[in-house]
Design a protein around this nucleic acid. Structure first.
Lengths: 228, 228
DNA sequence: GCAAAAGTGTTTATGTTACACCCATGT
DNA sequence: ACATGGGTGTAACATAAACACTTTTGC
């Protein structure tokens, strides 16, 4: 086996597919590139990994720098390393996917202010590099993740209605769910704690719930699996 | 955003957790390191990625070089990039996991010939670098993968008995399964094709089956999910 | 009082678990 | 004939799916 310094080294970047919820639409955060290659193209936020920087830390830093977004949840997705994926030379990217809580207002705030914007996950411009492929993998992963890990809550505000939760699942899974069955199942998990009532919109006010993280941690330690 | 050549670059390696079956034991292929660091330590087979080499191709090449193993199945696992994981400096490794069909004889052949050996997956020496952690992640991934993708067959010979298949699942999942329920369920999938009968061991000869890849490909295209 | 969304039970079908005996072969 | 592993069915139970009306609020 050879030592590392005897080899030509690739560059390593991190890229991040950040998902949020705009109403009941799944949206993804993109940045407009200011420099070549792909200048003016939309791309996933990301950048080079520091020589002494942990991969996840790099992803968080790049997101903070490029979009100002405070991440609640982030997980490694896949590493893309096709030799020709970057015209500048050999660049291997470790892709992450992330979920953020976006209220409609918070969203609007960061939508216009910078060269970073939310796009509907199923209607976004063609992306730079192989980012279309990365995003597709991220969406697929989110879809499967959501049904056996309680990550959907990361997309919702701290307090949410069961209808919001159901719409989230319908959006991510891409199919409609039966209201009564959904409510029964999700409540039977014993992971939602009741709160007061909201009044806002038209129609009857809905009860607000919050996800009970402590209870989930406890159950998980006992070998419980989420499954929805 | 900066250009790649303005950055100090990490080295990038691939490492591979190769699983095989020794009787009804899950085993893992390790190599003894011939050079520092960790000289004389056991480690996952792996090495540096060529500057124009695809990641998966690199993994296959290293395995071929170090162990002479012909891979049937290989998938990316996770990328490990803690800044201090390699004493030589910054080395990011893209880990893969692989499954090989090992008959008892084929296994014995490559067991002694080189500094590569099979070890029981739950009783192996402490490994170099962070390879213990990588192997643990690989085992966990295999466990969950096996129940919703038909990858277990990659560990068995082309033709196998239902008892072999059941033992494989019991080994990987780490719990015992009911014989009748297992057989009914697995046959109901319609993915096993019958063959002649084997005579070998003591007791009544068992029917041999093979996994019908074509049928699986067809069903998968229709949205079928494996699930066992 | 009407529009809008929240909330609530029962029946049916489907899948999962538990369980014990006879069969075919080699020695 | 006996030891060894192969093969088979049914009943109880649990989980998932289908389905429509009443309730509470704002206007």
């Amino acid at each position: 086996m050879l030592h590392s310094y005897e080899h030509a080294r690739p560059s390593v970047t991190v890229d991040c597919a950040v998902f949020g919820l705009d109403g009941d639409q799944l949206s993804v955060l993109l940045v407009e590139r200011a420099v070549p290659p792909f200048e003016g193209c939309w791309a996933l936020p990301g950048g080079f990994v520091g020589i002494d920087e942990d991969l996840e830390a790099a992803a968080r830093r790049e997101l903070e720098e490029e979009t100002g977004i405070a991440l609640t949840w982030l997980e490694q997705l896949y590493t893309f390393g096709a030799p020709d994926r970057d015209p500048r030379g050999r660049v291997i990217t470790v892709a992450f996917y992330a979920l953020v809580k976006t209220t409609r207002d918070g969203l609007r705030g960061s939508t216009d202010a910078r060269d970073a914007r939310w796009f509907p996950a199923d209607a976004h411009p063609a992306l730079a590099f192989d980012h279309d492929a990365i995003l597709a993998v991220a969406r697929a992963r989110l879809r499967s993740k959501v049904s056996w890990q309680p990550v959907g809550f990361e997309l919702l505000p701290e307090r949410f209605t069961l209808t919001q939760l159901q719409q989230l699942y319908e959006t991510v899974l891409g199919r409609s769910l039966d209201k009564r069955n959904f409510r029964r199942k999700v409540l039977a998990l014993g992971l939602l704690a009741e709160t007061e009532v909201r009044s806002s919109g038209p129609g009857r006010p809905a009860r607000l719930y919050r996800f009970d993280r402590d209870e989930y941690a406890r159950l998980e330690a006992e070998g419980f699996v989420f499954e929805l």
